[in-house]
Design a binder for these strands. Structure first.
Lengths: 231, 231
DNA sequence: CGCTGCGATATGGGATGCCATTCTGCCCGG
DNA sequence: CCGGGCAGAATGGCATCCCATATCGCAGCG
């Protein structure tokens, strides 16, 4: 699998004095999120350490980090396997993300300063452009950046840390399929409503629309993961 | 080596074939939550491994677990230090816990079966008795059990996992001081209101009271941590 | 022909040693 | 008397070895 450029230029040998384990985790997380390693796929410490030209120790730590993100499960003497990702998991996940992000949106509506609003407006405009010209990749990236920024600028580090732990799993759905155009339009509309609520400092409206937005997103991802399900 | 320290009867040498790291994490977590290791206190891998008669490897893993719980911070060449725990952290923490538990309470109000309600009623009654007779320790334990049960029975594993990660830090406040009797009465009242809402299957009321309950708790803990602050 | 038991292999967990970095304290020069 | 630099100690990270256990295949017996 993905062999082995022994001369891997990204090897952090000199680049990163520490945190090799986190680099390994990033590599593996990417593969899992992008679906290169399918659910049920095995991650064996010795294989990975050989492939990346490292010892098992940082790989072990990286696997623990991924387990912590809920991306894999580790069983003794059986290796790590990528967790399943089905409709139910997506709904569960987005329910929690909705709670965290709507909390953030409400906090922002109450306390956002001019600088924060400026950042948001700028990203929002950019996203609208990408949507209009049909650039899906940049649209999604900007969209994600908006969500992350809302959480970050809400000013509660606990929300941010908790959100970060969940977002990798949530975005596993992004690479599965193209989203329904009708849902795309609805999502953009919800983003616009949020911006209106923030400009009006209407915390209740901001929370409500954002919770709804993320519930819709969760349902869309769930529908993609299980076409038989429609709820 | 693994020579059983005669002074430490809890050594899991034979008791636990695996998961020594988790046992170490439990030991250290207990000490931190109970305040035996003060904020800013240092946890040195070699010291701990010597004290517990094991190698650095499981200790190292345990420290990573604690970092993950947000109880310590690890810096290279400086060791792990217990994170500060002040009024602001408590408020931030309980804001997130309130979001998670109120979500759970709402789900329970909509979907709880007879068995779940029975469990809750039983614990609730027990808590009322402990409160009435002034048994603070058992009151707190039963109270915590109710909160945990609500999250557990809500049927969303993501909520449960996320909640578990936050609760250790939240409960660091429990050992700081005795809570204001007026706040105790208010807390009991809020528990009663929640039970009423659950019995009536009123999800909105359940969410509202539980969010309020946890906001109040956060404010109480924050006030204990910083008597100058009163929000 | 099928079932049981034993051994080989795979795999994660723990122990241990070495290394790089950073912090501390002392000594020397100004 | 004070400041800068240097040496040694402290400390976490990585590499490597050994071990316990679970899994799988094969052989031998019923």
């Amino acid at each position: 699998m993905t062999l082995p450029d022994p001369t891997d230029p990204d090897l952090p040998a000199a680049a990163t004095p520490t945190a090799i384990a986190e680099w390994v985790a990033d590599v593996l997380r990417d593969r899992i999120v992008k679906g290169e390693i399918a659910p049920g796929g095995r991650l064996v410490e010795r294989k990975i350490s050989a492939e990346l030209n490292l010892s098992r120790t940082p790989v072990r730590e990286a696997l623990k980090l991924l387990r912590n993100d809920g991306l894999i499960e580790i069983s003794r003497n059986k290796g790590a396997v990528v967790t399943a990702y089905g409709a139910q998991e997506a709904l569960d996940l987005f329910e929690v993300i909705a709670a965290l992000e709507s909390l953030s949106a409400g906090r922002l509506a109450r306390a956002a300063g001019a600088a924060e609003m400026e950042e948001l407006e700028e990203l929002h405009d950019r996203m609208l452009v990408f949507h209009k010209i049909g650039n899906h990749t940049d649209y999604f990236d900007t969209n994600s950046a908006i969500h992350d920024l809302i959480v970050e600028r809400a000013g509660n580090p606990v929300i941010q840390a908790t959100h970060r732990r969940l977002i990798a799993r949530a975005r596993r759905g992004r690479y599965l399929a193209i989203m329904d155009p009708a849902r795309l339009r609805q999502a953009v509309e919800e983003h616009c409503i949020l911006m209106e609520a923030l400009r009006a400092r209407d915390a209740g409206a901001a929370e409500a629309v954002w919770r709804r937005h993320l519930a819709h997103t969760g349902e869309s991802v769930a529908a993609l993961l299980d076409p038989a399900l429609h709820g």
